[in-house]
Simulated scan of single mutants.
Amino acid sequence: MSLTQQRKHHALGAVFFAALLAGCASKPSGPVQVVDRTQSGTQAQRQYQQQVTSGQYRVQRGDTLYSIAFRFGWDWKALAARNNISAPYVIRPGQAIHFGMPPSSASAAVQPTRPATPVTAPVVSSRPPVQSVPATKPATVSKAPVVSSTPPAPGKVESVTRSSKGWAWPSSGVLIGKFSSNGSLNKGIDIAGNLGQPVLAASDGTVVYAGSGLRGYGELVIIKHSDTYVSAYGHNRRLLVREGQQVKVGQHIAEMGSTGTDRVKLHFEIRRQGKPVDPLQYLPRR
């Protein structure tokens, strides 16, 4: 290699090194964001929505007022009041649940006030029409099927340690996911465990949802503890309770699993008036 070629080679190397340093200097000095790929498939689906305040939702089979409120960031009492649903808060498939002002209320709010015009309403009978039945063929009365109202056998109740706020850990295991308050990913905590490991009620209450209708939660149990608090237990393998059942703190309500996620774990949430709160602020210190 001639002297001229050597000089050109060194010059090109210097230019490349300077460009590399400039590229490094242009990067932000703050911490680099790390994405946990093991959680993206589940938590991206389970992102907590800020309270939906417009539009409506059509009730699907298996929905409850509590599960709809949980899904769309509402306090169940407020959602019931918005839709004029009174106790025992029964909803039916196809029913419209309004998040904003119902159309009738909205139209009434913008209608100008007009003098009332007396209108004579026709008399409408509230009784169903009576069909005549031939005397030779007496009417046949079909009996409704008898449905057992006996609740499932109560699960085992373990002796657990409760915090000063009355809450107990829903399962033993390593804490692998903490609450996030920035509105992005985790609105509860995640506890690792073994397949089939008991999941316990974190406080006394009533089961208001037991099913798999909420995307990203797998087999899910929601318990109402008071007019203020509900708790949720997701990704179970098997549910041991049904809606309407009373449970005690420490009672077995499910078996830990991996439904709706990529590993065996329990996703646990506490919501206060519909808003997620950090469960670690309510559970006993370990």
Rank of each mutant, 00 (worst) to 15 (best):
G260L: 05
P134Y: 11
A11T: 07
Y57L: 06
V199Q: 00
R162F: 04
Q251V: 00
G155M: 03
A78I: 08
E243K: 05
G183Y: 10
A192P: 10
K143N: 09
T64A: 01
A153F: 05
G211N: 02
W76Q: 13
P93E: 08
I176H: 04
V157M: 00
P115A: 09
K224F: 13
K265S: 15
H252C: 01
F99V: 00
P93A: 11
P276M: 08
Y57K: 06
K8C: 09
H235R: 01
P128C: 05
Y48P: 00
I176K: 08
Q273V: 03
L200Y: 02
N84W: 07
N182H: 08
R37C: 11
Q111F: 00
I189M: 08
I97N: 03
T120R: 06
A96I: 09
L239V: 00
R285P: 01
K137N: 14
S107E: 13
A192H: 08
I191K: 09
V207M: 10
R37M: 13
K77F: 04
K27E: 11
R162Q: 14
G274Q: 02
G62Y: 04
H98V: 02
P93C: 13
S180H: 12
G211D: 04
F16Y: 06
Y217D: 00
G196K: 03
H10G: 04
A202C: 06
M1I: 13
S203N: 15
